[in-house]
Write a protein that binds this DNA or RNA. Structure first.
Length: 268
DNA sequence: AGGGATGTTAGAGA
DNA sequence: GTCTCTAACATCCC
């Protein structure tokens, strides 16, 4: 499912195939896709893709004076058009590429905003800083998350504290850092914060390396969990890759959490 | 065959 | 400020 690494991969695909190209036409057959700035759609035709970037789990394509912001939500993808893929939107470029927004569950969204209003658009979302690719020290993570009164796993998913981590990465990062997901942030030691500081970018790097390719591929696309880069996610009952103990599954704020009860001790 | 789980965000309410 | 719950949607699994 799309979290920071998957959005990064989708963004790279868009950049690789469309940056510098002229948008010949954009067709949006699904009228529930565009949530903001629908009248700006027409202004993008015939303009050039000047810039492509990512902020948290949002991707941005700047076409002339218009910024097209996308969010993939659960099942969204931005991929090259091909047979059998239903498009909620499709964009034809002068280099022969056609990009489509594919999204079975139709929760993904598109926002069109004047390019100069992009900073205000993101400011209004209240997103915290990017945890990648820049590295931070344990103290930085303690400053961002230490005041949370919810379990550390829930705090990691709070986009206002740190942006881009979702349900899967939160479990993975805590496994990597050897911190139990239900630990209260106030009880974490400096050593634990340092472990977390190292774990988050490391997990993102690992997932990116494993998944990067032409296009995004999600866990539930039909593949086996065993083939994913995840150590604990969706592996309930399987032996822990470090100690062999069975991976456990629990629930935080309504979301499944996967962890190893043996190598992820409380507090630390 | 029906109910729950799936991941994300905004917004409402405590 | 902080936290939890729900809606939005479609598909798969038990």
């Amino acid at each position: 499912m799309p979290e920071l690494p998957e959005v990064e991969i989708a963004m790279r695909h868009v950049a690789r195939t469309a940056r510098g190209a002229r948008l010949l036409s954009i067709d949006v057959p699904d009228d529930r896709l565009v949530r903001t700035g629908e009248p700006l759609l027409a202004s993008m035709a015939d303009a050039t893709v000047d810039d492509v970037w990512r902020r948290a789990k949002y991707g941005v394509m700047v076409v002339g004076d218009t910024g097209m912001v996308w969010h993939l939500r659960m099942t969204g993808k931005l991929i090259t058009a091909r047979d059998g893929v239903r498009a909620r939107a499709s964009m034809v470029f002068d280099n022969g590429t056609t990009l489509v927004f594919a999204d079975t569950r139709r929760l993904g969204e598109l926002h069109l905003v004047p390019a100069h209003e992009l900073p205000a658009f993101f400011a209004s979302r209240g997103l915290g800083p990017e945890p990648w690719p820049e590295r931070f020290e344990g103290a930085w993570w303690r400053d961002r998350l230490g005041s949370a009164r919810s379990p550390i796993k829930v705090a990691l998913m709070d986009q206002a504290r740190v942006a881009g981590l979702g349900n899967i990465l939160a479990s993975e990062a805590l496994f990597e850092a050897r911190i139990a997901p239900h630990t209260l942030p106030a009880t974490l030691t400096d050593d634990a914060w340092a472990s977390l500081a190292a774990a988050v970018p490391q997990v993102i790097d690992r997932v990116l390396a494993a998944e990067d390719g032409d296009e995004v591929r999600y866990v539930n696309d039909g593949g086996d969990v065993a083939d994913t880069a995840f150590c604990v996610y969706a592996r309930e009952g399987a032996p822990c890759m470090r100690c062999g103990h069975a991976i456990a599954r629990t629930r935080h704020a309504g979301r499944s959490t996967f962890w190893c009860p043996t190598c992820q001790p409380d507090g630390k």
